[in-house]
Amino acid sequence: MSGYQMLDPSTLVVLITGATSGIGAATARRFVLAGAKVIATGRRADRLIALRDELGPNLLPLEVDVRDNEAFVAAIAGLPPAFAGINIVFANAGLALGLDPAHKASLKDWEDMVDTNIKGLLYTVRAVLPGMVERGAGHVVFTGSVAGDYAYPGGNAYGGTKAFVKQFALNLQADLLGTPVRVTNIEPGMVETEFSLVRFHGDAGKSDSVYNGVEALTGEDIAEQIFFCCTVPRHVNINSLQVFPVAQSFAGFKVAR
């Protein structure tokens, strides 16, 4: 469209949780290289420092665990002025643990997924959202998953947490009607990151087997979709965006015989 004006990335201050690898790190790179300021959070300080060394002073590393609400709130309250006016929050921190059926799954794995994928996400949004509403500009972006829509064996608690993300995003939009704050849920299919390595508790053989013979999505693929959703004009809200690699589909129903 002739004259269509996307948002100027240099006006954006982006908070990204789970920025030490994968989609989070790729999204940090995409925004900083476009001129935005990025607050990159995570638990692995060495990776955050390496990201700052790579990208320069427009990236602020912030070592904090999203599961610790008090620490997270304090970290946000202590941001330097140049990074304090957050107008995009990308609640990306999350993980899958295990692929056992529910009757064999680890309860500890379930609890860790709930603590990070649900509670950590809630803490992130609650710490940042009031400021966005007060300043009259903002965008909340989630890393959901196709697992929040489509069930698969072993997806039990992980799929449940991503279904929560999907519904929370919709309810958040309902609450924010009448404000200029946008909400987007990004729902990737298979993305080749550290996701499976974490799911299989560091078993590289099992992790590699997930991606063998498949051209999966990359963190950069998803970062590009996030960047687009966040830079369309402010009157446009992309509610959700589901992204599969061409090699993946949800089709057919299994029958036990």
Score class of each variant (00 low, 15 high):
1 M>V: 09
2 S>R: 10
4 Y>P: 03
5 Q>L: 14
8 D>W: 08
10 S>P: 03
12 L>H: 02
14 V>C: 00
17 T>C: 01
18 G>N: 04
19 A>D: 14
20 T>W: 10
24 G>W: 01
24 G>D: 06
26 A>W: 06
28 A>S: 14
30 R>V: 05
34 A>L: 08
39 I>A: 01
46 D>N: 14
48 L>Q: 03
49 I>W: 05
50 A>C: 05
51 L>F: 10
53 D>A: 14
53 D>C: 06
56 G>H: 11
57 P>Y: 04
60 L>R: 12
62 L>F: 01
69 N>C: 11
70 E>M: 07
70 E>V: 11
71 A>Q: 09
84 A>H: 03
87 N>P: 02
90 F>M: 02
92 N>P: 05
93 A>V: 00
96 A>F: 03
98 G>R: 06
99 L>M: 13
100 D>G: 05
101 P>K: 06
101 P>D: 13
113 M>P: 07
122 L>F: 11
125 V>L: 00
126 R>L: 01
127 A>F: 05
132 M>N: 01
136 G>D: 12
136 G>M: 12
140 V>P: 01
146 V>Q: 14
149 D>N: 07
152 Y>I: 07
154 G>I: 13
158 Y>R: 04
161 T>N: 10
171 N>P: 02
172 L>N: 08
173 Q>I: 00
175 D>F: 10
178 G>D: 13
179 T>A: 07
179 T>C: 05
180 P>R: 13
184 T>A: 03
185 N>P: 05
193 T>Y: 04
197 L>Q: 09
197 L>H: 11
200 F>C: 07
201 H>V: 06
202 G>K: 10
203 D>W: 06
207 S>E: 10
208 D>I: 04
215 E>P: 07
221 D>H: 13
222 I>Q: 05
224 E>D: 15
226 I>T: 08
226 I>K: 04
227 F>C: 03
231 T>V: 05
232 V>S: 03
235 H>G: 06
236 V>N: 03
237 N>P: 10
238 I>Y: 04
238 I>R: 02
240 S>K: 15
243 V>R: 04
244 F>E: 06
248 Q>A: 10
249 S>L: 14
249 S>D: 11
249 S>G: 13
